[in-house]
Structures are given as structure tokens and as C-alpha cells.
Write a protein that binds this DNA or RNA. Sequence first.
DNA 1: TGATAAACGAGACGGTACGTCCAGTCTTCTG
DNA 2: CAGAAGACTGGACGTACCGTCTCGTTTATCA
Lengths: 199, 199, 199, 199
Amino acid sequence: MNTPNEQRRSERSRQAILDAALDLCRERGLARTTVEEIAKRAGVGKQTIYRWWGSKAAVVEEALNERVITTTDFPDTGDLRADLRTQMAIIAQAFDSVEFAPYASLIAAAQDDPEVAESVRKNMIEPRVHACEERLRRGQEQGQLRTDVDVAEVVEFLYAPLYYRLLLRTRPVTLEQVDHVLDAAFRGVAPVRDDGSPR
Amino acid sequence: MNTPNEQRRSERSRQAILDAALDLCRERGLARTTVEEIAKRAGVGKQTIYRWWGSKAAVVEEALNERVITTTDFPDTGDLRADLRTQMAIIAQAFDSVEFAPYASLIAAAQDDPEVAESVRKNMIEPRVHACEERLRRGQEQGQLRTDVDVAEVVEFLYAPLYYRLLLRTRPVTLEQVDHVLDAAFRGVAPVRDDGSPR
Amino acid sequence: MNTPNEQRRSERSRQAILDAALDLCRERGLARTTVEEIAKRAGVGKQTIYRWWGSKAAVVEEALNERVITTTDFPDTGDLRADLRTQMAIIAQAFDSVEFAPYASLIAAAQDDPEVAESVRKNMIEPRVHACEERLRRGQEQGQLRTDVDVAEVVEFLYAPLYYRLLLRTRPVTLEQVDHVLDAAFRGVAPVRDDGSPR
Amino acid sequence: MNTPNEQRRSERSRQAILDAALDLCRERGLARTTVEEIAKRAGVGKQTIYRWWGSKAAVVEEALNERVITTTDFPDTGDLRADLRTQMAIIAQAFDSVEFAPYASLIAAAQDDPEVAESVRKNMIEPRVHACEERLRRGQEQGQLRTDVDVAEVVEFLYAPLYYRLLLRTRPVTLEQVDHVLDAAFRGVAPVRDDGSPR
DNA sequence: TGATAAACGAGACGGTACGTCCAGTCTTCTG
DNA sequence: CAGAAGACTGGACGTACCGTCTCGTTTATCA
């Protein structure tokens, strides 16, 4: 892009584009949404979209980041498992709602487009993963998490099952799932010995 | 489709189409692969593709199922954790290889196309999930797995982290990851009490 | 063509093909008729058509020649003008009927296909033109036609106006037109009286 | 068509399309010319053709009307027969030249496509026929043509033989033919002198 | 407080691919 | 072995969008 003048940018058009993109993406997914439709629904020229974004995926990414998941903060009440539950419950609810469906489309779009992948990773996933990692690290320091595990892997361990259901749609993401994941993660699935210690 | 005569089908064309689709999908992803290219590379008329498959995704699905992951069997040596490691190591290796890249594209295509989603779930995921579930159930009966966990959720718990890395590409799927996942899953991430029992 | 065995040819299929071709051509013109349709309507394999004819136009030509204009004879009662009127009236009636519409399609097809043009000229037009020319020549010998005109041009002079309306469809070909054409033509080509007044 | 904005139309593309269409039509006839070829040779998107014309025939019609027969005027020197000869000679020369071949293709296309027929009649034939009719009427008033003939039929009588040869290609359209036609026609339609002999 | 330059809406443009229709050929099975 | 059935390769169809490119028309600083 030849970097147009940001100050002259029309905020009204920008908002209309984000709205239209998000709505269309909810109605039929990103793959079935065209730039032409977004422009028409937003009452905007196509060029205005191409001027400010690199692709329709970039529009949706910005829309999601600005409208749907607006925070990267992680709660810290001192009780790690409770805080994880709080946070994961929010994500679970989101993953289960139609409002959030464009996120799955976005991850899909990232599969065959390295630029989108890079952007989603950097702007959507990493900030939130880092916030979680830091919370886990604090829990680790406070003896609420084993010290011989990699917090980055724990994040995966906890959130991957939610992504699994979001993307494979084998069954819906629920609060119950969050509890079972936390349970399995914290206690492990190995059978317990007579003395109560893990096998 | 108006169901053409299966018996008159040309096996040679079928194979050429599967080959071409898989190759193109590896080179640039399913989204950037066109039916026209597949036809041209396979030396086939487009109609022959449309006659037998509903979409390019369906072609790739059949190709993957017939060429890349050809078995749904699950090992059973009597040692559950060892068998899981064996099986997960195969998957990890696959998820990390270029040969297998079309699978991620396929899951992406499924996001905004319910027919593809349905088909992938039914023909690719479920058979393998069921095999794993059965193995877990046998392990459960033999006291190698807690009896108060849902085996379906354990499958997710184990494989979701692999899918997470496959689809979000935060880092590569490795054999090390498999070990860490199994470790965390079997032991749990909670710190161990002084008496050695879980918290 | 590799000249298949004429004796084994199925007359039943041949008739069905001619019928189907003629009907379809009447319904929507030759240009909008496909070989596939002809085959299907005739209950015949496409190959059977390609085996015996070089093009759909060839089929229609044969059908017309065998079903619609079955004779090249020219009447000869001794009165040239009356005979011309008899013959032209038949043509006019044909040119004005739907039954005959495929003939216009055929001439159209001949415009951009030299093979069709050649065949139509040779098999449809020339025999009838020659018959007319001969009748004109006999009339010439009997003093019913000026001797300094080229009979070939007289044929054109008489029939061209019918073709003009058939192909440009400015207005329908009628019996009245035939009379007007004959009237105009004969005052022009009639031999001169002894006193030098118009023939 | 949903009537796009005429003012934004690219004249350069329009000219390139007319040129390409005319050339291709001369090389192999309209029936063997594809919209795709026209677009490619004109360096134009197919949509640009479909946006402004209803069919390839419409393109050729416009091209012919704008490039090849650019006038509908009819000469009037006071001598009807001489003026007819002048005008018919132009037509004869055109009908005999390769430049003009697309006209025959166009009439062919009109046979099985009522829209093309309608348009050719209205935009190509009628204006010229009317001009000729008016000239004939003036001649009629000046005693150069019998008053009991329908000028519309005289037009047919004169031009039909040229069309006959153009479309049936039994032999080439020549200046000699024009003279013979005029000769035959005028002896027929010329008013009779006082003494009863032809004028 | 114009003027002036950028962003804007509109949408035509050159292109690519779509999914469909047929052409003409090839293959398999039936009478 | 001719024929019916119909799958095959291939090419063009007419359409949908892509991303780019003019066009006037707002709109918002600066002279």
C-alpha cells in the first residue's frame, strides 16, 4: 500500500465496513463473503476497502479485535485454577456463539494465506496467550502449578480442546467441557493408587 | 449429481485426479488450487471432476483417505500409554510433514462449507476417534485409565494440542510435544503434595 | 469416415434420426439443435449419427430432401408462364410454412461451413435449378421467352424474391407475390411483338 | 441488460472489439468465431463485451453498420435507372468482397435467433430499403416507373438476385448481373409509350 | 473563506475461474 | 459387428468477483 493519509480517513466508512464484514461473515462465513458485497452493504466504494486493508480477512480480523474480543487481560484473584476457569468460561461462551463464528473463518483463511496467518497469530493469539502464560507463571511461583512444566504447553493443553471443538465441530464448546479439561489437566487421567498418590 | 454409472468409471482418470489434487494442494494450499488446474494437470476434462465429486475439497478428502492416512487401526500391546504414544507419534510426524498439509486446508474448507464439514467429520475424523476411544475403553477396563473420565474427552485432551499447532502454527508438532502431552495428561499439572499425592 | 458396412445399417434408426432432427429443427432452428438432443429423441446413440453423417446439417439436408421436397420434376403443359406459376406456388407455400423452416436454417448453416454449402448446392439447389432451366429453355424454343436472356439468370430473377423474404423475413412469402414477380418478370423477358411493342 | 453507465464507457475498448469481431468474422465466419477470441484479440475482458452487447451477432452488426456500410443515402440525379445502377453497383461490389462477408454470417445468425433477426431488419435493412423506396417513389412521380407497381416489391425485385447469390453462392455477384437485373426489371416496370412500345 | 487536494461513492475495466453444455471420440455391453 | 448407452477430453459458454483504474463529488485542512 502507498500509505494514504490516516487523518483524512472517514471513520464512518470504516465502521460501516467492519459492521458489514462481520455481519456477512456470520451469515455465510468468510469464504462465501465477497469484497463486493461488503462494499455494497457498507455503502462504500470497493477502493475504500482496498485502500485500508490488505484483504477481506484483515477487515474481519480488525472487526473481531475491536468488537468481539476487546480485552487481553487475565484475571488474578490469587487462585490460579479459579482464574483459569473464569477466563476459559468466557472463551467457551464465545466459541459457542454465532457472534464469534467469524473467528473460525479467519483461522480457516489463515491456512492457505501466510500473511493472514502471520497477522492473526500476532494480533489475536499471541497477546492473549502471553497474558495467560504470565498468569500461569505467577501461579507457578505461588506453588499452584508444577514447576517442571512449560507454561506455553500448559496454555495449549488447556485451550486446545476448545479450539478442537470450535474447528472440528464434533460437539459444542460448553462450560462443562471447561471443567472437565481443568479437572483432567490438574489431576491427570491416570488411575489413583490405594494411597491416593498417582500411579 | 444425477448418479452416473459407477461401473463405466475410468480408474485411470480417478487416480490422475487424486494425484494432481494432492500435489497442487501441497504446493499452494486448497484455497489457491482451482478445479481447472487439477483437470489440466491430470489431463482430464473438468466435467469428469464435477461428475464424480461435489467439490475440490471432496477430491482432496478422498485422496487423503486413500493415499496418506490409510488406516484407522489402533495398536494394542496391552500397555495403553505406550500404544497412545505409538499412535500419536505417527500423527505428530504426519502433522509436521508437507505430505499432510492438505489436511489443514481441508479442515479450513470445512469451516464455511457444511457439506465438507459433515463429510470430513464422518469419513476422516470419526472412524479414527472411535478406534482411539475403544482402545481407551479397554485400557480403562484394565485399570490403566481413571474410570470417572469420559473417553471421548480424553481423546480430545490428547489430540487437541496436535490440532492446535497444526492449525494455528504457533510452533511445529513434534515427538517431544507428544511426550509432554502424555505426561501432563497422565500425571496432571497440579503440584505434588509432600506425601506424593496430588493436591 | 471409415465407411462402415451400408448393408448392416439400421433403417429404423435412420428414420428415427431424420424425424427427430426435422422436428427439433422446426421447434428451435438448427443452430439451437444439438446432436445430443437428436440422439436422445431418436432413441439412438450419438455414434450412430456421427457414423453416417458428417454433421447435423447433413442430417437435416437428407431429411428435407427425403421428406419435404421430394421431387425435382418441373411441370410442362406447354404454357411456360402457367407452369412457372404452378411450380413457384408450390415453393411459395413451402417457404411460408413451418414444416419448411429447417431449409432456412440449412442455408444459414451453409454460410460459415463450406462443406455444408457445397452439399446443399449440389443436392438441393442445383437439381431443381436445372429442371427449371430446362423448362425455360423449352419455352424459349417455343417462343415464350426472349432468346437473348440467360435462363440461369431468369431462374434467379424469379426465385430470388422468394428467397429474399424467406431469409430476411421482411414479410411472408405469398401466392400474390408469385403473381407480382411473374408479372414484372414477364413483361421484361417476353419476346417483342411484330410491331415492336413490348412482348 | 441492466443498462450500465454509457458515459463511463471506454471508446478504445469499443473500437478494439468491433475491429476484432470484424476481422475474425472475415477469417472464419461468425459461427466459428467465439466471444472469447474476440475478447482476447481486442485485449479486453469478456464481460466488457457482454456488458454492452447482447450477442456476438450484435457486435458484428454494429461493426458493419459503423465501418462497412456507413450510409443509407440514395443518389438522386433525376435519372432513376442510372441512380439505381450507381447504388446497386456499390452493393454488388460489397457483396462480392471479403470485407463484406460478415454480412452473410449475420443474416445466417438471424435465421435461428429472433432477436438478431429483429435487430438486423430494423438497423440494417429497413433504413436502406426505405431510402430506395423513396427514390423509386420520386421516380414514379416523374414518370420513370409504372404507377401500378408496389415500390416495396420493386426493391425486392432488384436486390433479391444479389442476395440470392450472396447467400447461395451459386456464382459471384458482379456488375454484369446488376445490368442484367436492371434490364429485365425495367422492361417490365417501365411505363409504356404512347405508341405502346417500351419506353 | 475560498482553493485545493485527498478520500470518497460509484462502477467500468482486464482478467481468472467458475460450473455447465456440447462436440466429437472412445469404450463397454447387448441383440 | 451395428447399435444403445454414456463416460471421456476438450473448448466455449455466460456469470461472478478479483484488484485496478478512472470518474465526478464531498470533505477538511491550509493559503
